[in-house]
Amino acid sequence: MEILEWVRFMIGAIFILIGLCIFIIEVFGIFRFDYVLNRMHMAAMGDTLGIGCSLLGLMIFCGLNFETFKIIMIVMFFWIASPVCSHMLSKLEVTTNENLTEHCERRDDLAELERELEEEAKC
């Protein structure tokens, strides 16, 4: 039994440390990249994978009870809400930035883009 407890601790600790590493990478990336839309990529990684890994580790520590259910609720909430946050933020950036074309391409016509992609696939 004692060894099983230690095994559980080890698995949980590994998950938590992975999550912590992802958070560190996230903060590093936010200083490394130059533009908001690139930084948002790092932030989204932390919001989904980082919080998923660290809360999975904490769930393993917790065992099977009502608290685990609450932690699952938190993770599910974050996984639903965080992409919407990123979507709104990117919309804000695209609308308010007047010289957006310096940083990235912008296509208003989606059908044309799809046609071009199909042509590329054919070639």
Binding site: F23, V36, R39, D47, G50, C85, L89, S90, L92, T96
Partner: peptide
Amino acid sequence: PRVADRLVAVNMMGTMVMVMITVLAL
């Protein structure tokens, strides 16, 4: 430099505080 930068950073802070609160609960 931009408003979106600040909002992204604040959103990240929210995520980290969430993990901290869960750790404190345990």
